[in-house]
Every structure is written in C-alpha cells, then in structure tokens.
C-alpha cells in the first residue's frame, strides 16, 4: 500500500473543484487549470487526488500536465515572470529580453529563484502584439520592454 499524503484543507479544495466540474473526466483540463490557480503549481500528490476524484489514471493526468506548457509541477515564484515569445514579440527582440531576465536572476526558464521571489516562464502571445515585446509579471503587463529596462522592472518587486 502506497500512501499519498496531503493536507486536509488541500484535499478538500481539490475535491470541491472537481465536484464543481461534475467529477467528469472530460473536464480534466479545466479542473487542473483551477487547481493550479489555487496552489500555483501541480505537484504529484495534487495530481493523484485529481485523478482519484475524476476516476482516471494518474498517468493520464500527468500526460495532460506535461503536454500543456501552461501547467507546471514546480512552484512558481512570488512574482511569476512570463515572457511572450510569440511571433510578434519574438521578432521585436523577446529573446534578448528573456536572456536578460535569466542573466539577472541566474535561473533558467521554468525555474524559481532560491529566495522564491521570481520564476521565469515563456508563453505564446497574450494578444497585445502592438506592445511587443510583452512581459507579464503576475497579472501586470509591461509593453515594449528592452533588455536595458529589465533591471528597473525587477527593482519594482525586489524592494517591495
């Protein structure tokens, strides 16, 4: 018998989310979306509970989590940085901006800084191509970002 351990409040929260979607296997993506919104990421134990509630295999849930780049199994930073690398942002220099964030924070894409403050991820198009290149920190949108401006943006949060 293998044990999956999780705090009671978390188990109950996941159960509630699954129940809101009728515990339907076809709602797995929506459920995971909500659960990640709740916890910030989707660790193995959380996926186990979701699989159990939706009556599907854990392998299936893990398949979904690893297929969609939106889902993550690593905890995000307090201020998650998302650099848009969609076509418009890319041609306007998103990669250089991304490199600057990586250099400044000394972490790779998908990682979180040791102090848990920042994490970097990439996304494809936020629908604000006119502002390219675009960076999101949390819910806040920064447009026409240049590598030189990266430090200033980070400082807004470093001292916060």
């Amino acid at each position: 018998m293998a044990k999956v351990k999780l705090a009671e409040s978390k188990i109950n929260k996941i159960k509630e989310i699954c129940a809101n979607f009728g515990n339907l296997p076809g709602e797995a993506i929506n459920v995971l979306h909500k659960v990640q919104g709740e916890f910030g990421y989707l660790p193995a134990e959380v996926q186990e509970v979701v699989a159990h509630e939706l009556n599907v295999s854990v392998a299936h849930i893990y398949g979904i989590v690893t297929f969609y780049s939106f889902f993550t199994m690593l905890p995000k930073g307090e201020h998650p940085i998302s650099v848009c690398t969609g076509t418009a942002c890319y041609v306007r220099g998103a990669e250089k901006v991304l490199d600057e964030f990586k250099r400044e924070l000394k972490i790779a894409v998908g990682e979180t800084t040791a102090d848990g403050k920042f994490s970097i991820s990439c996304l494809r198009c936020v629908g604000a191509c006119g502002l390219a290149p675009v960076v999101l920190i949390g819910e806040k949108v920064y447009g026409r970002v240049t590598p030189d401006g990266v430090k200033d943006i980070l400082n807004e949060y470093r001292n916060a």
């Binding site: 193995a44 854990v58 297929f67």
Partner: peptide, 20 residues
Amino acid sequence: VGALSAVNRGFEAVVAPAFE
C-alpha cells in the same frame, strides 16, 4: 490498468507511467 500514457510533447514525447 492505466499504467501508461503519452506524456510531454514534441520531440520529448514518450509513453510512460505517471511522473515517468
């Protein structure tokens, strides 16, 4: 049985058990 599922995407895609 549900031991296997396609996981990851693109060139990284494999068929594997949960959490590989």
